[in-house]
Design a protein around this nucleic acid. Structure first.
Length: 577
RNA sequence: CGGGUCGUGGCGCAGCUUGGUCAGCGCGCUCGCUUUGGGAGCGAGAUGUCGCGGGUUCGAAUCCCGCCGACCCGACCA
């Protein structure tokens, strides 16, 4: 490959695009890799397309090596299969739907579980056809409420989605493990530093679920790690270690007048002021905060639910929803209709609604909490004596410094990441609804169990840019760079010709070459552009050409070395290994 | 979907409060000459439905209403 900048469709921008905020978006636009074309949609320019193709090739290669077979479905699909699985409605506003000229409903697919499963149903019949691992690389559509970050979150994006079909749980577990290892290889080859975090499986159902997060400050996902062990998890999936139950030593429950204290802060202040229970060292963590939420179970009446947690913690509704999935949860606000729920003064004693408590609320713990009367609170409200929760719930926000649930020794740290991959054991949700049965070795029907494995390819390009840049521009990993070497003809006279001659020689040796052969462009501009474009090595054919020397530059370290022109091909070939 | 900021040549911006030589600046682009190792110099040029639609007015980039779009925060997010 030999690209000449004199004819390449490329325009680098000297100034920052005003509508780009995150580094990857800014640099990809400024360096001429992408250009916005539609709300949440980007045109890949020649250089951007080269990078995406290299990313895609790596993914294809590893998927095939893992036993995957590539297929390709239409992106425009009929409604019916999605009605069968319920996703036409369950997917909600995120689903891009279209009507054809006859008014018939179609959708622009966000994922393809239905189509893959129907294909498997159509083309298999015997245990001999399994296990099966199919994948495709397809444009996916989601009517995102808010697109952001250029390629990071668009309404249209390129995704590799794979689905495995096994006839046994053991087979699924084995396939899942193989895909997990494959993903680690893929992301390592892409140069992406990543964490594998346990995730909740969400509305898709299924048991094991892990997300691959490329660490980046601009990432939308917060995940926790441990200072001691290798635990990593999405905040939704973090479990709280429960302290051991205690013997009841607290005195009997006592009710106090606490006027004007509907908030934890005001309650703690008043409790100390009045020395409730003889104490003046009340802290928010001594109080039990009781929050009322409305749980919207699909197809059922909403449930009003109370959640108890230490008063120094906020409720994290995402964590609550993760537990109660597929139900959605909102804060309850219709206190007028429930005189039994006294806003600001709710206690767990004698509640008429279901009450779930934070795991820290173990039997024997004594709390300062509401007395279920306006302007009154109670001290020494003891779990297991004065109230018994209907269960525990992971509702409290996770904080840095919280104890690690895995090793118990370390503290949790919080970092941000870009979700670039997600794998999970889907189970039989889809094979059940489509009644996919095949004959087993004993002649009896067996229902395959599924795994699902996705990688956002266009997003991965952005994630790579996010992790590999400096103040001068992009710094592509060699594995995905649009070219292996960037030859800069720095000056006048024969330098452009010499650069092109060198480029042709390298190209013949199988090296991807970009030559800056633009006439009448000053060396300074060419150097700046080379640094912005981020091709890992460049060769400057310039002032020492007459002496037979070129200059090699390393984009990452910015190191320069003089090399005899005749040796350039050899040096680069050696570096490429 | 809520809150905020913003839409003016390809890009970055000024002008808007106070309607009337305000359609302007820098970069980029074209042509000529010079220059050529760190975003060159001089000269001459081209490029705008001022996001879209309606309204007010003798007159609207400027005021009013509606819509669309972008970005940020939040909600949402296989």
């Amino acid at each position: 490959m030999l690209l000449r900048m004199s004819t390449l469709l490329l325009k680098t921008l000297r100034e920052e695009p005003a509508d780009a905020e995150v580094p990857s978006h800014r640099l990809l636009v400024r360096a001429g890799f992408i250009r916005r074309a539609a709300p949440g949609g980007y045109t890949l320019l020649p250089l951007g397309k080269l990078v995406l193709d290299r990313v895609t090739a790596i993914v294809q290669e590893e998927m095939v090596a893992a036993g995957g077979q590539e297929v390709s479905f239409p992106a425009l699909l009929p409604r019916e299969p999605y009605d069968v699985t319920g996703r036409w409605t369950e997917y909600g506003d995120l689903l891009f739907t279209v009507k054809d000229r006859r008014g018939v409903d179609h959708l622009l697919a966000p994922t393809h579980e239905e189509m893959f499963t129907l294909l498997v149903q159509d083309m298999t019949g015997s245990y001999r056809d399994f296990p099966l691992l199919l994948f495709q690389i397809q444009t996916k559509f989601r009517d995102e409420a808010r697109t952001r970050g250029g390629l990071l979150r668009g309404r249209e994006f390129l995704m590799k989605d794979a689905y495995s079909y096994d006839l046994s749980e053991a087979g699924l577990i084995e396939t899942y493990a193989r895909m997990r290892a494959t993903y680690q290889r893929i992301f390592t080859r892409l140069g992406l530093e990543h964490a594998i975090v346990s995730a909740v499986s969400g509305a898709m159902g299924g048991s094991a679920s892990e997300e691959f997060l490329a660490t980046a400050e601009v990432g939308e996902d917060t995940f926790v790690g441990c200072t001691v062990c290798d635990y990593a998890a999405n905040t939704e999936a973090v479990t709280t270690p429960a302290p051991p139950a205690r013997a009841v030593t607290a005195p009997a429950l006592a009710v106090h007048d606490t006027p004007g204290t509907p908030s934890i802060a005001s309650l703690v202040a008043l409790a100390n002021e009045r020395a409730l229970g003889g104490r003046t060292d009340w802290a928010a963590s001594d109080t039990l905060k009781n929050v009322v939420v409305t749980v919207h179970h699909p197809g059922r009446e909403p449930e009003v639910l109370a959640i108890g947690l230490p008063g120094d913690r906020e409720v994290d509704l995402k964590r609550v929803e993760a537990v109660l999935s597929p139900a959605t949860v909102t804060m309850f606000d219709d206190f007028d209709s429930r005189p039994d729920l006294v806003k600001g003064y709710i206690g767990p004693q004698n509640l008429k609604i279901r009450y779930l408590a934070d795991p820290r609320v173990v039997p024997g713990t004594a709390w300062l909490t509401g007395a279920n009367e306006s302007g009154r609170h109670a001290t020494d409200v003891v779990a297991g004596r004065d109230f018994t929760p209907d269960g525990t719930i992971e509702a409290a926000e996770v904080r840095p410094g919280d104890p690690c649930p895995a090793c118990g020794d370390g503290a949790l740290t919080m970092r941000r990441g870009i979700e670039i991959g997600h794998i999970f054991q889907l189970g039989r949700r889809y094979t059940d609804v489509f009644k996919v049965d095949v004959l087993g070795t004993d002649g009896k029907a067996v229902r395959p169990t599924m795994g699902c494995y996705g990688i956002g390819l266009s997003r991965a390009v952005a994630a790579i840019a996010e992790q590999h840049h400096d103040e001068r521009g992009l710094v592509w990993p060699a594995t995905v760079a649009p070219a292996d070497v960037h030859i800069v003809a720095a000056g006048k006279d024969g330098q452009i010709e010499a650069a092109l001659t060198l480029g042709a020689a390298l190209s013949r040796a199988g090296i991807r070459v970009l030559v800056d052969d633009r006439p009448n462009v000053s060396a300074g501009v060419k150097f700046t552009d080379a640094e912005l474009l981020g091709i890992p090595r460049s060769v400057v054919v310039g002032r020492r050409l007459d002496e037979g020397y070129a200059e090699l530059r390393d984009r990452r370290t910015l190191e320069r070395t003089e090399v005899p022109l005749a040796d350039v091909a050899g040096v680069i070939t050696r570096e490429l290994g």
